[in-house]
Nucleic acid binder design. Structure first.
Lengths: 161, 161
DNA sequence: CGTGAAAGGGTTCACTC
DNA sequence: GAGTGAACCCTTTCACG
């Protein structure tokens, strides 16, 4: 889908505040409410906007620790990967999981309440993941940046090469 | 702040759909609209809900690549870290940055449009970060899970140890 | 593609229990 | 803390430019 300046302004405003009303949004981007509503509808239906979510403080839920876990599997057969990934999806503490190039096969971000909780997760979930031959945990001492996505502006102002 | 069952139901509903109306939310959690609105207000003001955001498709913005970058610095002096982190914050393509324990000092998640774009980011941003003595890039071949936070349910049903 | 108006529904008070 | 009702504002939709 092609996005023009107004679409980008809409996306940016909704990235900043997902619960902004259509009237405010229209005002912000310099459109009438109805025109803005139609564009928003298109952005949602085309999948540019995947959804909306509340950012909930991890601390408020008791999560004070973030672990970054590097994992290697015993092989790269499709079935091996599928079984591993299926198990990963069942663990609620695994927030992010990427299959990656390089030394390891997967990098995971794991949320834990404290060190004791992490030990439990490591014992009951991570160690139990199928086909794992190596697990390497490190801990986030401090989050510097935690964004959901790249700035909408940056996507268009950046040089092409 | 103490959260009861209804608060958790509210958080869960808003995690699923950040733009749900207060009336629907009230219906979902079995409360009158006014009572629900009051609780929501408290959750926002107390910081349990940090905000709301639209989930925008990275592909729609042209971002087809995710790099995971491991970085070591020349030292751990407060000033060294502060200068590095300040520079990190200026790069729009750095979506996530954690200071971590272990072999490296920082792990970054970097969004790039393609390999050429990543080369540019590496050259103009990553290589230019101060005090860096080692950079190790790997690429996400496939995202398996990409969540913002742990499930609200899991935060309360999980064993304490 | 944008505008304006009307109908239907949501939000938010003060008030009450 | 929770529910009720009313005023006000927002969203949606449709005809029109």
């Amino acid at each position: 889908m092609d996005l023009d300046d107004i679409d980008r302004a809409i996306l940016k405003a909704l990235q900043n505040n997902g619960r902004i009303t259509n009237a405010e949004l229209a005002e912000t981007v310099g459109l009438s409410p109805s025109a803005c509503s139609r564009r928003l509808d298109l952005l949602e239906k085309s999948g540019v906007i995947e959804g909306y979510t509340a950012r909930i403080s991890p601390e408020a839920l008791g999560y004070k620790m973030t672990a970054l876990v590097h994992i290697s599997l015993s092989g790269q057969f499709a079935r091996t990967l599928a079984e591993f990934e299926e198990a990963v999806r069942r663990c609620p503490n695994i927030i992010v999981c990427y299959m990656v190039s390089g030394q390891y096969d997967y990098i995971l971000r794991v949320a834990a309440k404290d060190l004791k909780d992490y030990e439990r997760i490591h014992r009951d979930w991570l160690s139990a993941l199928p086909h794992v031959v190596q697990i390497n945990s490190s801990f986030a001492l401090r989050p510097i940046i935690e964004r959901l996505n790249v700035d909408v502006d940056a996507a268009f102002t950046a040089p092409t090469a």
